[in-house]
């Protein structure tokens, strides 16, 4: 891809759009699986922003942070999916609004 110069503004705009979409999904969906997917989208958009910044400066740091985000995502998904199984077992539904035992 030598010589291809993508405007940074457009890449970051794409990241922002993805983030907004993920946020909408997080706020709208009641199914906990979709909530996790929304989180994935949001993390991915953040990673995109990092990589884009790294590409702007021609430095590897953006990709390093992308790998760290990847690690966080992996850990989060593994625990999150475990929680999905627990919720299904205890409440017999995937409705996240059913798990309100922390109500004040």
């Amino acid at each position: 891809m030598d010589g291809l110069q993508v405007p940074l503004e457009h890449v970051l705009g794409l990241a922002s759009l993805l983030f907004a979409l993920g946020l909408t999904g997080l706020m709208v969906r009641r199914n906990i699986l979709f909530v996790l997917m929304s989180l994935e989208v949001m993390l991915n958009s953040a990673a995109l922003a990092f990589v884009a910044a790294g590409a702007h400066w021609g430095q590897p740091d953006g990709q390093v942070v992308f790998m760290l985000v990847l690690t966080v995502t992996a850990a989060e998904v593994s625990v999150g999916l475990g929680l999905v199984l627990q919720i299904q077992r205890r409440f017999h539904t995937l409705d996240i609004d059913a798990a309100t035992r922390l109500r004040g």
Partner: peptide, 14 residues
Amino acid sequence: LSRSQSGRLRQYAT
């Protein structure tokens, strides 16, 4: 304030 503490995750996210 404790009424706002509904335990609903989506509300917290909002």
